[in-house]
Design a protein around this nucleic acid. Sequence first.
DNA 1: CTGTTAGCGCTTTCAA
DNA 2: TTGAAAGCGCTAACAG
Lengths: 337, 337
Amino acid sequence: MNAVNLKQLAQELNLSVSTVSRALRDSWEISTPTKQRVFDLAKRMNFQPNPYASSLRKHRSRTIAVVIPEVANNFFALAIKGIETVAREKGYHVLIYLTNEEVAEEMAVASSLQNGRVDGVIVSLCGSTQDTRHLMELQQRNIPLVFFDRVADNFIAPKVTTNDCESGYVATEHLVQAGCRRIAHLTISMSLSISHRRQEGYVNALRRWELPEDPGMVVHCDGGEEETYRMLKELFMSDRRPDGVFASVEKLAVMTYHVCRELGLRIPEDVKVISFSNLVTASLLNPSLTTIAQPAYDMGKEAATMLFRRLEKKYIVLPDDQVMLPAKLEVRNSTMG
Amino acid sequence: MNAVNLKQLAQELNLSVSTVSRALRDSWEISTPTKQRVFDLAKRMNFQPNPYASSLRKHRSRTIAVVIPEVANNFFALAIKGIETVAREKGYHVLIYLTNEEVAEEMAVASSLQNGRVDGVIVSLCGSTQDTRHLMELQQRNIPLVFFDRVADNFIAPKVTTNDCESGYVATEHLVQAGCRRIAHLTISMSLSISHRRQEGYVNALRRWELPEDPGMVVHCDGGEEETYRMLKELFMSDRRPDGVFASVEKLAVMTYHVCRELGLRIPEDVKVISFSNLVTASLLNPSLTTIAQPAYDMGKEAATMLFRRLEKKYIVLPDDQVMLPAKLEVRNSTMG
DNA sequence: CTGTTAGCGCTTTCAA
DNA sequence: TTGAAAGCGCTAACAG
């Protein structure tokens, strides 16, 4: 019913509160028999220390925050799973905040975390974030920050990313080798560094294969859904219709499918599509979708591990410690390979 | 840098701590000019009250826990989104715990929540949970519980579900009307009430359409992946191969695809598949997958709303308050309809 | 309207 | 090896 506390245990055992406290933390200053008595009673009474009292006293909450743009997206969902796994191992709790791709919400969250509610934060920026002062303030309050995937370039903090540029190259080259000559690149917000790097890879591949770089083939889909839809339709109805599409994120691949179907274009016969994605199901269900799978789960684990290293100060970590985990090309359709 | 606290504000303003505290909570006992002075300084010094001090004092954390089997699953991801949305509106924080479908982890989580870390809990059981004593203990400690989707039948608590039985009926009937005569039903753990209800709907439909009820056509896929795979393969290689499959969860639909492809069976020509699912992408990418879409986001919102009602005691809610939100049949392939 | 005071439950000096 | 006491930062009686 009502929670048991140290005082009750102490009274029951004719000990002082401090002794009980120390015994429970297995302090060397307490005799073995006393410890045993305390352990036993604590277990019997199902004692659970009040985390808030402890946090208040120790200025440490054993809680971290994960701030991501969305969760109904396999990449972030898997990342959370990785983070949660590591956190549980380390005895930490995980607060989750969704920014819904809105800078305003990202700022509100950051501001609400300035008061010591969490010991550290793992962030993936929302597409529209330009200014990261709200996150810098967290660091200034001694709350370590770790970025993953959508990192802030000019921000000194540990970062976990995938080899976006290289993967963009591989993806594009894959389309080239499958016979595509007019390859479009669909990206999300260009304020994200990952978008730049993926596009860089795309351009590099075009150059390597001596294909023309048509600026009209790079579509920045940072507007709303309808806007994007409109742009894609326009692209596919133009006389320079692409025969290959490299989508920077899964949603854009799906929309491409939509548009193509509507226009009577067959995939992969008329248009080949490749996309960054973690939606295993999608590629299973439709063999024509080749994907660049990011190691989302491992990225989450890595981000959490880096954060906990800093929290537990076991190692001295350079402030700009960076980890890059490779994405994997997953070809499911032999006609493309 | 270092957090500002009430005391500092009070000193700066030549007021007592309690006055400042009251002013900040906009108490009617404080004069307007004083309030203004306090507000101004608080804003200027970027004061953020320490949540743990407040929680300790008020025995209220403005934090809830969400305990779910997994997150890399569109249903749960969307539900989280719904929960988080409502929580933010109400000024609550959301802790997330994944049980990975393991009762042991579910129990560990429940036990770790007994100490007042959270004001309430939203749960979806893991497949293997039979005994729910660990959750009852939470209730006994006055921590309100709300179930969603995978609810515990004989547990008095608010529950948010979909119309599983009806949807199971509709799904099966849909296959019948598409010409299927040997309809298999694939379920997950039969200790979940949703499984029972979906199966009930399936059976009802078979009876209504006077199709034989072959127990061999109901496959309980509660083992590991390989085991399930084996069972499905067996099912499709037998002489009574199904021409329709009603999968209780998406993963089983995906595995069916796998197996069929391996055996050279075409979908939907040889085997029609329908499944409970929230993976919009999947159905978009493959028009032959008809889905029963659960209103995951709304279920999350509803669960959170019910929880907050109880936390804020605005209404008197019956302890067994139940909400059922309808799932929607999403047909994407006209050849099936 | 404002101040004083007594805790919330725990950790941690400092003393014994 | 144990206990007494102070205090983390905030809230809420109770007094004025």
